[in-house]
Nucleic acid binder design. Structure first.
Lengths: 147, 147
DNA sequence: ACTTATACTTGGACAAAGTACAAACAAGCC
DNA sequence: GGCTTGTTTGTACTTTGTCCAAGTATAAGT
């Protein structure tokens, strides 16, 4: 598992180092979306004492190499996850939870701007609203939007 | 102009206060996308000394009320602009510039997730890539993408 | 296996962006 | 004019992330 990640790193032109292996391992173990700090905490819990800076460095390197997916969902911090397929995110404004939304196209960029703005590498969509759980917990009473 | 903004605030159930009028006025005067700090600096330049906190408060209140548009383009800070029509953003990874991309649908939410995730209020799309100006300035030399 | 170049790590300090809180203030209603 | 309550304001603080310089270890060369 760690060896497999190492191979992918080497293929991406990255050196296989302890922090990177640890970080990608943590993301695989945690599943879902996590901030740099959450990765750091998870590692600390598992007796892998990496400096905060190293976690940031590793995440940046791995994300740039395409081994993990970086998503800014406007929750304050950027979240990372192991990259399988390209997808989008739904953010609940009430509980802050992030869930995946499969990308209809599957490939990047999955949308194109109507105009010529330059070279588009990717289009990230962030859906905002209230998740099903918060909706249910609330009884669905005050759903009075009037944009 | 300020009166007109005041009316809209009152309609949105907000009190019309000096900081809010000043902030919305600054955004109208500046046009384009600006961070809270840029608004603060603009006001300071025009002899309107608001505390940083008040700028944040006002922007948050105005954005929540729908009078200004909040966009997280992952440039570090959130940018605000006066809300006319719903649109998306293109962020240049080289120069950090933000440009508008008209929304094909025009109404919110302009996209829907394929799945049922809850109540979706809006879908914000962030296009990332290299803007035309940077592309031209570069001669298109090192454009080596290989996702 | 030994050596070497250099990519990477590490720690500490730093900067930016935003939030929390409590007291003072003022907008809107009577 | 006076009251109620939403806002403002200033300070302090937290969170998130970057910079730097010295040390370390990876991968390649011999």
């Amino acid at each position: 598992m760690a060896g497999e990640a190492g191979t992918r790193m080497r293929e991406a032109g990255l050196r296989v180092t302890r922090p990177r292996v640890a970080v990608i391992g943590a993301l695989e173990a945690m599943r879902g979306h996590h901030t740099a700090d959450e990765v750091h905490a998870h590692l600390a819990r598992n007796d892998v004492a990496l400096p905060r800076t190293s976690v940031y460095n590793s995440l940046t390197a791995l994300a740039d190499a395409g081994l993990v997916m970086r998503a800014d969902v406007g929750r304050g911090a950027i979240v990372y996850e192991v990259a399988e397929t390209w997808h989008h995110h739904f953010v609940c404004g009430r509980c802050g939870g992030v869930s995946d939304v499969p990308c209809l196209a599957g490939a990047r960029p999955c949308l194109t701007p109507g105009e010529d703005v330059g070279a588009v590498d990717e289009a990230q969509v962030v859906f905002r609203g209230t998740c099903r759980r918060c909706l249910d917990a609330d009884g669905g009473g005050d759903t009075a939007h009037e944009h």
